[in-house]
Design a protein around this nucleic acid. Structure first.
Lengths: 336, 336
DNA sequence: CTGAAAGCGCTTACAG
DNA sequence: CTGAAAGCGCTTACAG
């Protein structure tokens, strides 16, 4: 039997209300009372009962984060840990507990909805769920502040924070153009992967603006092998490519490999740029230029946004899109 | 304002107690009453309040799972998703909600301990925490059923489920020996990584039993590059190696690559076997033989064990170690 | 700054 | 099978 607030109060010689104020951080407590309560709590090994707290206080001081199955783009190139780090830091700074959920089946999703709707969390962050999922809508209907990470299905009136994949694709391509490259290929991600299409569109826009043809496009699974295979196909169809923009670092690494095996020098003959600026990018030979998405910032902003929505109810949904940065390394710029 | 049980009971024309019985799955309710309650709940959009439930019922119907930071061996070769899948399936089958925590700092750990001790979860599963961490001990002291995934620091009296890394290392090595290989090298993981030492010991034991010398051992970071570099060092010190056992599939892939670049044929000249039987193993050229750990089973057994510990309090700690299987592919066995 | 008291929304013997 | 009632452990106006 864990100790209760009553026992602590009695041991400290104060009322339950005063003891409660100590643990809830209420400043209207004398130094003397505070010390008595704290030492009593220490001796009894007291930890406030979370259920009672939530019930009486009508808040749980925790925020739920629903993560998708592996296989999503978030798991490629180590994006997930960075995103969770950003979210976790911001929540921690506000004294909130981050609680993760990884539903694996429809049954899991149903149970989870009950759990989230049951007052266990004050707000919910949703990371790139399957498009057809109705969880965001149903949570909103229940009045639970909800923020999406990444872009939700069009037409959904949900708050979200996203990184700008379109601008990222454009930035990568413009970098290659500025370096004087003209026959630029793109290795895109699978069409169904969120963000892949936007990166491709960004590539096309930059090429179009520079009056270059954007004909050399191949899709690949986002991993190294996908990049290697796509590069092979590109070389078969157009040998004279002088630059490649790949939609993931892993694919860029695979592409670079395929080029080098055939004796092409990187970046001398073909410049290569990846996406996400993952740890992998610094480890390739030569090191890989890449587009860095502010993923930690995205996490932080998601947390801030949902906290603001919790603080003032009934706000309309809000959106935020964060811009990319370029990490230039030796796969695009020759050093001599 | 969400609907309460009282409102549902009134709408259904029954007492609060009867309504409560419907939602707690108590069979002592007439069909008629049940139907009335269920339809009233549906209309009101009722979801039981979790905090009230936990407080009154003294259990939360959820189990906490504490996951380590990325970088642990569990994140290499995709082990973490498999482990969580096993745990999640077993908990779901028992109607329990899996709740994940990823503490990132000491402050996070302290807050988490309060949270877990505060009755938010009925039991805790701990996945390969940093060795010096005192969380398991402190949770046990508070009477919270706790099970470790992987082997805890020696001397800790904690229940755990582990896969048998020693047997895995031995099995991989014996496979190579049975194929007639004699100059067998091992690419081990970093010394501080849990399990790496056991795999190395298993290698040594198998070699010793076969009266072979276990001199060719190099350590590498667990990724592809680590394997490639370690293989280079091994070849420099002993060119006539005829087999390699690597402690991860990624390292095995890197090693295979290093061999092929130098014109060695796999498996004709050098047989290669990895560890974990990850998706990567099936994707290499040639496909990689590997040791398959029953990770999903480990997850399931962890869940079962902690549920049993919760059901009957005061049990002494229990341990379970699961044996490996061999996945034989073409990197060790020639097909003609 | 402090205390008495009401109330948060449920579960569960107990009696019938 | 059903209901009245006590109780889970806290928070928070309210009054002082």
């Amino acid at each position: 039997m864990p100790a209760t607030l009553d026992q602590v109060a009695r041991a400290a010689g104060v009322s339950r209300a005063t003891a409660a104020r100590v643990f809830s951080g209420n400043p209207r407590v004398s130094e003397e009372a505070r010390r008595a309560v704290e030492s009593a709590a220490m001796q009894l090994g007291y930890v406030p009962n979370g259920a009672a707290r939530s019930l009486a206080g009508r808040r749980s001081d925790s925020v739920g984060v629903v993560v998708p199955e592996p296989g999503s783009i978030l798991f490629l190139d180590q994006l997930m840990p960075r995103l969770l780090r950003g979210i976790g830091e911001e929540l921690s700074a506000n004294g909130l507990q981050m609680v993760l959920f990884a539903p694996q089946s429809t049954a899991d999703l149903q149970r989870l909805e009950q759990y989230l709707a049951g007052g266990h969390v004050d707000a919910v962050l949703l990371l790139a769920l399957h498009e057809s999922d109705s969880l965001p809508t149903r949570l909103q209907a229940r009045g639970i502040p909800t923020v999406f990470g990444g872009r939700p299905r069009p037409g959904l009136d949900v708050s979200f924070v996203d990184v700008d994949n379109h601008a990222g694709g454009r930035t990568a391509t413009e970098h290659l153009i500025e370096l004087g490259r003209r026959r630029i290929a793109h290795i895109a991600g699978p069409a169904h992967v969120p963000g892949a299409q936007e990166r491709l569109d960004g590539f096309r826009e930059a090429m179009w603006k520079a009056a270059l043809r954007a004909d050399f496009v191949e899709h690949g699974t986002l991993d190294r092998d996908g990049g290697e295979l796509a590069m092979g196909r590109l070389l078969a169809m157009a040998g004279e490519i002088d630059a490649v923009f790949a939609a993931s670092d892993a694919m860029a690494a695979g592409a670079m490999w395929a080029l080098q095996v055939l004796g092409r020098r990187v970046p001398d003959d073909v410049a290569v740029i990846g996406f996400d600026d993952s740890p992998l990018a610094a480890a390739t030979q030569p090191p890989l230029s890449s587009v860095r998405q502010p993923i930690e910032d995205m996490g932080r902003e998601m947390a801030r946004l949902v906290l603001s929505l919790s603080a003032v109810r009934g706000q309309s949904s809000r959106q935020m899109v964060l811009g990319p940065e370029l990490s230039v390394r030796e796969s695009t710029v020759m050093v001599r």
